Amino acid sequence: MSTAHHAVHHSVHRTTAPRPASTPPSWCADPYADALRAGRGPLFLRRADGWLLPLDVERWCARADETDLGVVEHCEGAVLDIGCGPGRLVAALGARGGRALGIDVSEAAVAHTVGLGGQALHRSVFEPLPGEGRWGTALLMDGNLGIGGDPHALLERVAQLLVPGGLLLAETAPLDIDERVHVHLVHATDDGLRADDGPFPWARLGTPALLRHAERAGWRAAGQWTAGGRSFVALRSRDQRRDHGRDRSTRSSAEPPNSTAVINSQRAANPSPESPVADA
C-alpha cells in the first residue's frame, strides 16, 4: 500500500455517533471508482486528528482468498453481501452454486460485481431492499461494520433483513476498539493526500465491542475465529420461537477472543420457498 504513517491505538472508545447516512458521498467519489477499476490504491480513511486507515483495495479487487472462502463456507441460504465492493465474495458464492446478492453505494463497485457474473444493486443497506426478512445470511466484511457510524442502528437494520435466527458474519478490527467518528476518504496525488467530499460517519469495532453491541441489540453470539490475520464473529438474529423460555446466559457462549473455533455447525435452511435473490 503506502508508507504513509498510520498510528495504532489498542483501546479507543469514542461516542460521537451521528444517525446513519443512507449514501456516504465519498464512496461515490471518482478516486474510489478509479481505484476499483485499477485494482489498487492507495486510499485511506482519515480522521479529523489526521490518523489514517489504509484501505486494502488490492485484496478487495483480487479473487477470494483462503480466508474469504472460509467465510463463504459458513454461509447459509441466500446471502446478502452488504457493502460488497468489487464483488469477490458474491462471485465466490456464485461459483459454488450459492444464491447471493451484493449491495453497494458505489456504482463502480456494483458494475465490477456484475462484471464478475454476480448480482448486485446500487443501494444502501438503509434503503428498501428485495427479500427483506428472507435472507439466510448477511455479510459485513472488510470494515463494513462501520457503515453509517452507528453499530446499534446497523445491527437492528440487518436483523430486519434476515430470517428469524438468521446468520450475520462480520469482520471485526484486530484491536479492542469501539470507535465512532467522522472520516474523509483521501487518495494520493502528486501533491500529497487529498480529501474527497465528506466527512461522513464511520465506526470501527473489535470483537469484544461487537459482542457488547450485539447482546444489547438482541443477537446471540454463535462463534468467533481468526484466519489470515483477520478476525470474524458469527451472530444469530433473534428468533422468538427458539428464545422463548431460554435463559439469557446461554446466548453468549462464544469462545475466547483469540480462539480459532468456528461457528455452530447446525445449519438452518432458508425457510422461504422463494429466493430473495430472485426479487432483485
Rank of each mutant, 00 (worst) to 15 (best):
Glu215Gln: 13
Ile147Asp: 11
Arg238Ile: 02
Arg134Phe: 07
His182Asn: 09
Asn270Ser: 11
Leu210Asp: 03
His187Asn: 06
Arg267Gly: 02
Ile177Asn: 01
Val181Trp: 08
Leu193Trp: 15
Gly148Arg: 11
Arg220His: 11
Leu211Glu: 05
Gly223Ser: 11
Arg194Gln: 11
Ala188Glu: 15
Gly136Lys: 06
Ala214Pro: 11
Asn270Met: 00
Arg204Ala: 12
Arg216Lys: 15
Gly228Thr: 09
Asp191Ser: 14
Arg230His: 11
Gly149Thr: 08
Ser272Met: 02
Ala153Val: 14
Ile177Val: 15
Glu255Cys: 05
Val158Ile: 12
Asn264Ser: 15
Ser252Thr: 08
His182Val: 01
Ser272His: 12
Gly206Ser: 08
Gly136Leu: 06
Asp150Glu: 10
Thr172Arg: 04
Leu154Lys: 03
Ala221Asn: 00
Leu235Phe: 08
Ala195Ser: 06
Asp150Ile: 00
Ser275Trp: 07
Val186Pro: 14
Gly136Gln: 06
Ala221Pro: 02
Pro271Cys: 03
Ser231Asp: 09
His244Tyr: 02
His213Asn: 05
Leu129Thr: 06
Leu210Phe: 08
Leu167His: 06
Gly166Ser: 00
Pro271Asn: 02
Glu156Ile: 10
Ala268Asn: 07
Trp225Tyr: 08
Ser252Leu: 08
Gln160Glu: 07
Leu139Val: 02
Val233Ser: 05
Gly131His: 04
Ser272Gln: 02
Met141Thr: 03
Arg267Val: 11
Pro164Gln: 02
Ser275Val: 04
Ala261Met: 05
Ser231Val: 15
Leu155Ala: 03
Thr137Leu: 01
Ala214Ser: 08
Ala269Arg: 10
Thr207Met: 10
Ala234Ser: 14
Trp225Met: 01
Leu210Thr: 01
Thr207Pro: 01
Gln266Pro: 03
Gly166Arg: 03
Pro201Trp: 06
Asn270Val: 05
Val158Phe: 07
Thr207Cys: 03
Phe200Val: 10
Ala268Ile: 13
Phe232Asn: 03
Val181Lys: 13
Leu205His: 00
Pro271Glu: 00
Ala268Phe: 15
Asn264Leu: 14
Arg204Thr: 05
Gln266Leu: 15
Val186Leu: 02
Gly133Glu: 03
Ser253Met: 11
Pro164Val: 00
Ala268Glu: 14
Gly223Thr: 09
His184Gln: 10
Asp196Trp: 13
Pro151Asn: 04
Leu193Gly: 06
Ala173Lys: 06
Glu156Leu: 15
Phe232Gln: 01
Gly146Asp: 07
Gly133Arg: 07
Glu215Gly: 13
Asn144Ile: 09
Asp150Pro: 09
Pro199Asn: 14
Gly146Met: 07
Arg242Ile: 04
Glu179Leu: 14
Gly149Phe: 07
Asp190Cys: 03
Arg238Leu: 14
Ser259Trp: 04
Gly223His: 11
Asn258Tyr: 05
Ile177Thr: 13
Thr137Met: 02
Arg242Cys: 00
Asp239Met: 09
Ser259Cys: 00
